[in-house]
Computed example of a mutant assay.
Amino acid sequence: MISRRRFLEVAGAGASALALAACTGSNDEQPSKPAEQPEEEPEEQAEPVPVRTTALKGPTAMGLVKFMSEVDAGNLADNGYSFQIVASPDEVTPLIAKGETDIAAVPANLASVLYNKTEKGVRVIAINTLGVLYICELGDSVQSVVDLKGKTIYASGKGSTPEYGLQYVLEKNGLVVGEDVQIEWKSEHAECVQAIATSSGDAVAMLPQPFVTTAQTQNDKIRVALDLTEEWDAVQTGDEKSSMITGVAIVRAAFADENPAAVDAFLAHYAESVDFVNDNVAEGAELVGSYDIVPAAVAEKAIPECNIVCVTGEEMKERLSGYLEVLAEQNPEAVGGAVPGDDFYYGA
């Protein structure tokens, strides 16, 4: 099994130090008493506001589960948090457009599409999931990307980010789609698994988590050969680097402008939740199952491979902007026609 890395950046606020100068009298006078400093008034606590959040079933919602459970238990009262889990990105778009949700966990490219379609009406506040795509096979013939030469890759997601991510990794390793590697597109992940099971041995499948784990429970001979997130990272050069990214959290721009303290509080809770899920996989998996995101047994095996993170600020901007540029080079419509401007990135 290949090694995997996890990235975690917790959003926080820096603290500044104050220097006080002592007052003394002239040489022929006794030192005067230090001037009394006026008592600082405590900062006014921001009034709690409703924060409506929507997430998708799958990895992009997994990092939220501890946050959600704390809210349900009544342990977080700084704002009025509420959550809903939906099955399709198509359900999120109208909620954002109508102002019926404030924060949403969505596919990375959809965040860019919404930014363009709503005339800069959303901002990205965090990367919540890095790549979840894996090359799988029945056997052990694939140890590196170049070993894919001469093979057929069965995959689903044509015309969307899985296609663009796969092509980018192949091209960066000198493989030409249609010549060195064939890609056969299927409508469902299960079809890809069935295809490699009945192939002559020169076929592999590109599958996402947690479906990889689900497939392995049905056929324990399926082997993860390549982590496409690691392969993406391996071909990055220069100072500006991108990452393969699956999901992000976005906020309505109007909500962020009116309630910056609520957005910052949300990010702090979110980061703590991601930390908990990654460090307490069994407990996190039970919460994932309890919210009907995926079954707990699948979640426990899948969480370590789902690259759940909370990356914010400048690092978020560097990684995400580079990723969106890669997508735009292959198909501008994948990002809504144009890569977003700097105002897309909250806190960067």
Rank of each mutant, 00 (worst) to 15 (best):
P89K: 07
K98S: 10
I96T: 00
S69Q: 13
A87C: 12
S82R: 05
M68D: 05
M68H: 02
A73H: 08
T93Y: 01
L95F: 06
P94L: 04
P94Y: 00
D102L: 06
K98Y: 01
E70D: 14
G80K: 09
D72S: 06
E70K: 03
A73E: 15
A77W: 00
G80A: 14
V86F: 04
L76T: 08
A77F: 01
E70M: 11
Y81E: 14
P89M: 13
D78H: 08
A87W: 04
V71P: 08
L95G: 05
G80Q: 13
N75Y: 11
G99S: 07
G99Y: 05
V71L: 15
P89Y: 11
G74M: 04
S82T: 15
E70R: 02
V86H: 01
V92D: 08
I85S: 11
D72V: 04
S88K: 04
D78F: 05
Q84N: 12
T101D: 10
N75A: 15
G74D: 07
E100M: 10
E91F: 06
D78I: 05
Q84L: 14
P94H: 00
V92F: 05
G99H: 02
V71K: 07
Y81R: 08
P89V: 09
N75G: 11
S69T: 07
L76M: 13
N75K: 13
D72R: 03
D90A: 10
T101H: 03
G99F: 07
S69L: 06
D102K: 00
A77H: 01
S82H: 07
P89D: 14
I96R: 00
A97T: 01
Q84M: 14
P94E: 05
F83G: 13
K98T: 04
P89W: 10
T101L: 06
E70S: 09
A73R: 12
